[in-house]
Simulated assay, not measured.
Amino acid sequence: MKLTASTCALLVATQALGHYTFPSLIINGVTLPAWQSVRRTNNWEDRNPVTDVNNINLRCYTSQTNAKASTALVNAGSKIGFALNQSIYHKGVMNVYMAKVPQGTTAADWDGAGNVWFKVHEIGPITNGGSSISFPTDDMLRFEFDLPRALPSGQYLIRAEHIALQEAAQVNGAQFYLGCGQIEIAGGGNGNPGPLVAIPGVYDARDTSIHIDIYWPVPATYRNPGPAVWRG
């Protein structure tokens, strides 16, 4: 059957309905305009997830360093977060990573390559010894958390990812939805963030937190993939 242009457009739009992006930073309760301080991703229209943990798009869903945005000023210890373009449709977990921009460059010009990322926040499921599992990110439209006060001053990339696990029983079935913001920390401390990891590189497709059946048997416990959260 030959599909018309309008039918193809409808199929793409229908597929995108269940998918989501992270277009806006939230700073001390104020939601910034979409794609102002978050790099507009290659999937900003189709919203397709990353499913290959070794794909360069896992970093910021773009391999183009010219996917620039403005860099928002934030004080260390401030409340920060992300707003989504629509509520989270899939059951899964949230991780937030940051990476300090090297001296001599800016957040807008840096691609975040290398062992430079550390985790600052995560939202995992609520488990009950194998009798039930629930996901606090269900239907979430926004989330916020406090930046560590010990975070050193300077420019950073801040990256949110939601890992949808509804098809994770098969290898490469987990779906990664993500966005990278650009911030400059003022009034920072003397902390030493870590452990540092590379993205891609931090995950293995067979990690038991990524390759997992969340329906049966119901997981008795769960640990978000990646390093421990650095709290300063």
Rank of each mutant, 00 (worst) to 15 (best):
N85K: 03
S6D: 09
I158S: 01
R39K: 06
S78N: 07
L141A: 07
K119W: 11
H211R: 13
V120A: 00
H162C: 03
A169N: 06
Y97L: 13
R149Q: 11
Q36P: 03
I210Q: 01
I80M: 00
V53R: 08
G191E: 00
N66K: 10
A99Y: 15
Q36R: 14
F82I: 06
T51F: 09
A160C: 01
T51I: 13
Y222L: 12
H211E: 11
W216E: 08
T106Y: 12
G29F: 07
G189A: 11
A76E: 09
T51A: 04
K2L: 10
M98T: 02
W44M: 06
D46R: 15
R142N: 12
A99I: 12
P195F: 15
M98F: 10
A16R: 09
I210V: 11
L11H: 09
Q155C: 02
A69R: 03
C60P: 03
N224G: 07
V120K: 00
M94P: 00
A108S: 07
D111S: 09
K91N: 11
W216S: 14
Q64F: 12
K100M: 05
A9V: 01
P49S: 12
R149E: 09
Y222E: 04
D207P: 03
I27S: 00
L141I: 04
V38C: 11
K100D: 01
W110C: 05
A76F: 14
A9L: 05
P23W: 01
L10Q: 13
V197G: 11
D146G: 02
R40S: 05
K100F: 06
Q155N: 03
P227Y: 15
Y156D: 02
T14V: 10
S209R: 10
F118M: 11
